[in-house]
């Protein structure tokens, strides 16, 4: 049984605005019966104010798909189209007090239906290249298609790198076999692909994707690390935690986690997430380590 919130149950058992909406002037269809999820969002928009006067939905899908559709119609009613377009899938999930990671795609579908319906009202064509694979990492809801793409684009070769780039595998680690399989598959393709000869096979990530970034001076580099960590601090502080940089030694950056971060179950995941940000910002591969490791790591 899924761990659905009370709010999800309530919206499933008593869906708001379900059924055909008469006089709808913006309709968005997403999903398909093949995937087991299909949603039609119907909007009645006031042409003068562009306000959504009424919203209705029809959904073929599971409990959380129906609840997400119901929530979406409640959220957007009374909003202007531009305001409504700012609603993210996370807003839908938050409205329902959260969704299980396997079910986050239900909220994504809601947002896509909204975009499609608005496009339909405005006489535009909405196209989405949305593709979704089997869920690999349940801690961070990362699917196979995304992992494969990131592995291919960045020529990743280890599970650790995949965790840095996508967060997948950075939590409970039980999906590492699945990630290794994707890595093996991509590396096999790279070996047999006819273009393999022209494609550099990098020994490390540092030499791979971000190689194009201009080389920073030592001073610029330290400033950049500091800026990146500073930008993350408010997020940690919101959860009553904090972080400070202790030492920068080559590719190793030593930090102290403070407050609620200390001993938190997600400590490793937090470090991984910050590390990903640093790798992106610096354009080189760096490791984020707890200060306790100072002098121990090679």
């Amino acid at each position: 049984m899924w761990d659905y919130s009370e709010k999800v149950r309530e919206h499933f058992f008593n869906p708001r605005n379900a059924g055909l909406l008469d006089g709808a002037n913006g309709v968005g269809d997403v999903g398909s019966i093949k995937c087991g999820d299909a949603l039609r969002l119907m909007l009645k928009v006031d042409p003068d104010s562009e306000k959504i006067v009424e919203a209705g939905f029809q959904t073929f899908g599971c409990g959380s798909a129906i609840a997400s559709s119901s929530a979406l119609t409640e959220i957007i009613k009374g909003k202007t189209l531009d305001e409504a377009l700012k609603v993210s899938n996370q807003d839908i999930a938050d409205y329902l007090d959260g969704l299980p990671p396997e079910k986050m795609h239900c909220s994504v579908m809601g947002r896509e239906a909204l975009q499609a319906a608005v496009a339909n009202y405005r006489g535009e064509v909405w196209k989405d290249d949305h593709e979704e694979g089997a869920l690999i990492c349940k801690c961070f809801a990362v699917d196979a298609v995304l992992i494969e793409e990131v592995v291919r684009v960045n020529s990743l070769t280890t599970v650790e790198q995949v965790a840095h780039f996508t967060k997948a595998g950075g939590g409970c680690a039980s999906c590492h076999e699945g990630i290794e399989e994707i890595l093996a598959k991509v590396s096999k393709e790279a070996c047999t692909a006819p273009t393999a000869a022209t494609k550099p096979t990098p020994a490390s990530v540092a030499a791979a994707a971000p190689a194009a970034a201009p080389k920073l001076t030592n001073f610029q580099r330290i400033r950049k690390i500091e800026e990146t960590v500073e930008a993350i601090r408010p997020m940690l502080q919101r959860d009553h935690g904090d972080i400070e940089i202790v030492e920068i030694d080559g590719k190793n950056i030593y930090v102290n986690l403070k407050g609620a971060c200390v001993g938190c179950m997600m400590e490793a995941a937090t470090l991984n997430g910050i590390q990903t940000k640093l790798v992106e910002a610096l354009g080189e591969f760096v490791r984020l380590l707890p200060a306790a490791m100072l002098g121990k790591a090679q």
Binding site: T59, D128, D129
Partner: peptide, 24 residues
């Protein structure tokens, strides 16, 4: 009643055509 593939009296005609999402 809330399925887009079901009409007033039964399944919509050619459900896959009647419901034409932007991606499938």
């Amino acid at each position: 009643k809330i399925s887009p593939y079901w009409g007033e009296k039964g399944p919509v005609e050619k459900p896959e055509d009647a419901f034409a999402p932007a991606y499938a």
